[in-house]
């Protein structure tokens, strides 16, 4: 079986995905918050796409790292949406977008602290129970630590283990964080529970200053990130891989080419693995 290579659904290329002229992903990923409670034109488009492709979902506003309670009304709506759209994997960010009952819609860095590990893990468990499914938690890009007691890998490991959740491994984010915070990306990958990875994100980023990269999803994937991806997939079992591109869209062939690149890398790694286990 071929590895599933998908792309993040954007309104800019919805029609193309329906017509399948240049983009031919195996699945799509959508942010529920961008489609929930919507009728009319966009609901029609969403239906056309979800009828055509298997769907994974990448949440934005669950705010699993918030100090306060989960938003139970929202959770109910979300569960309904995931069921209606036959979503196979649901993922969210290891971050928070809300405090003091106010959303700010940006992914903020949870302080890497002991109590935060316990707290976030408790909330993830609760969210998993409410949604009736496991959540794949994504390692996010962060631009500053906040009074950290441990490093990112320890924090991430702690949460995944205590919450008994899955991992959405964003390889580009590992690269970005390793660059911005001066650590070794491969060593970071080695420390992760790779058997818990539900799927992988790949994306481009932007170097805004000589010593700072921002995770924009607005550029093509760069070679060092492909190499980190190759390193990663050689160390783990086969999972789906998703290309994220959120703006500054190139010609669609270029996006398809990026998906092809990802496929070539995974084929080398995972065909070999399959042959070994036969």
């Amino acid at each position: 079986m071929n590895t599933k290579i998908g792309i993040g659904l954007r309104r800019e290329f919805v029609d193309e995905l329906v017509q399948q002229k240049q983009l031919k992903p195996d699945f799509i990923e959508l942010a529920p918050e961008n489609w929930m409670k919507m009728g009319g034109y966009w609901k029609k488009k969403l239906r056309q796409v979800t009828e055509k492709y298997p769907v994974t979902s990448h949440g934005l506003s669950l705010s699993l790292g918030s100090p306060e309670e989960l938003d139970y009304d929202f959770m109910k709506e979300l569960k309904k949406f995931l069921e209606e759209n036959n979503v196979q994997i649901f993922s969210e960010h290891l971050s928070y977008t809300k405090t003091n009952n106010a959303h700010i819609y940006d992914l903020l860095p949870i302080p890497f602290r002991e109590d935060a590990v316990k707290h976030v893990a408790t909330r993830i468990r609760e969210a998993q129970e409410l949604l009736g499914r496991k959540i794949a938690i994504e390692n996010v890009s962060y631009y500053t630590p906040v009074d950290a007691e441990m490093d990112e890998a320890e924090f991430l490991n702690g949460v995944v283990e205590e919450a008994d959740c899955n991992l959405l491994l964003d390889v580009n984010n590992v690269y970005v964080n390793a660059f911005n915070h001066n650590y070794d990306a491969r060593e970071f990958i080695n420390r992760l529970p790779l058997d818990k990875v539900a799927y992988i994100h790949m994306a481009g980023h932007e170097k805004v200053e000589p010593d700072l990269i921002i995770d924009t999803h607005g550029e093509a994937i760069i070679d060092p990130v492909y190499r980190l991806f190759e390193y990663t997939v050689n160390r783990m079992p086969e999972v789906p891989v998703l290309l994220e591109r959120d703006f500054n869209f190139p010609e669609l062939e270029e996006l398809q080419q990026e998906m092809n690149n990802l496929r070539n890398i995974t084929e080398k790694a995972w065909r070999k693995e399959n042959a070994n286990t036969r």
């Binding site: 100090p67 809300k98 405090t99 003091n100 903020l108 949870i110 302080p111 109590d115 408790t122 009074d147």
Partner: peptide, 17 residues
């Protein structure tokens, strides 16, 4: 499960934003 201290850090972060 969350200490007041960590909660305060998070509030301050969003206030700053």
């Amino acid at each position: 499960t969350l200490d007041n201290y960590t909660e305060k850090l998070q509030h301050r972060m969003t206030e700053y934003c």
